[in-house]
Design a protein around this nucleic acid. Structure first.
Lengths: 148, 148
DNA sequence: AGAATATTGAGAATGAGAATCATGGGTCTG
DNA sequence: CAGACCCATGATTCTCATTCTCAATATTCT
């Protein structure tokens, strides 16, 4: 998603093009694969525009989520995190969360297609998007456990 | 999970058996398949024990989650919800969330086993539990959309 | 350019959940 | 069964993420 496409997208939705919105998207685009909190985005955006307000960050990430440019993810913390969405895939990607070190590993997979087909057939539910979290132990933590 | 087993489980963990803990679990057990907020549990528990405090509900649901008797679920609201865990299965069950009417449909499925095997093989991650949310349209909302 | 209107920034307000602490209730030992 | 020990409870306060409010400003349309 380049800046010009973003401007068109905003205008199509009746939203105004502002320097704040451009800047927040740019910061997100510069950190693909990272799971950023509103506060973290705020700090990074302030390096370019120190005048920006935190409330604007909250409002802007909501706009970007609505436009499907970023995803909101919830990792059982007390803050929400946001991640740039891969525009090539129409789905969220998955997250594996280590119960040992809390590390989050992201991965793509389409093995859910048969699950989605089964749900459609069984209860008539048409899946548009999915969100999968796997809880377990990463290879490093498994090694540590074996050593003990 | 009957009450006697629960008492044994608490004592095994070095936790005390209290009337409040018994009551909260009982209320959860009387509402299988429902996704209750702390406030809703509070209201129901108060009908039997009006003296109980809200803080105790917060503390008790945390205990029940740790004991794997209930699951905490997050539906992109600003409150957490809790659901009785089916003791026959060691995993969370899945949730299909309708984008039209916000209805939540629960279902069991083990089609994730091949996904979990793939993750183990590919990145050495050992899955202990999973949480799946499908976003889409339920059969009723699909009918309404077709009629328009 | 000027009107119309959406957006912003600052600060206050909200609300879920956690922390605090004195009191009360289980549990263990003898 | 008594008394000690200490965890759990209830009431309240506190914290902190997020939302709301509103006047000032920036963007878009004509």
């Amino acid at each position: 998603m380049n800046q010009e496409d973003f401007k068109v997208l905003l205008r199509d939705k009746g939203l105004k093009v502002t320097s704040q919105r451009l800047l927040v998207l740019q910061v997100m685009a510069e950190h693909p694969g990272e799971h950023l909190t509103t506060e973290e985005i705020y700090d990074m955006v302030k390096q370019t525009n120190p005048e920006i307000g935190l409330a604007t960050i909250y409002r802007t990430v909501q706009v970007l989520v609505d436009l499907h440019l970023i995803d909101k993810i919830n990792f059982d913390e007390d803050v929400a995190r946001y991640e740039l969405r891969n525009q090539n895939t129409k789905h969220h990607h998955h997250h594996a969360i280590c119960l040992g070190c809390s590390k989050v590993i992201s991965f793509e997979d389409d093995l859910l297609e048969n699950l989605e087909a089964a749900v459609d057939e069984r209860i008539g539910f048409k899946v548009m998007d999915h969100e999968v979290k796997l809880y377990g132990y990463c290879s490093e933590c498994r090694k540590k456990m074996e050593q003990q």
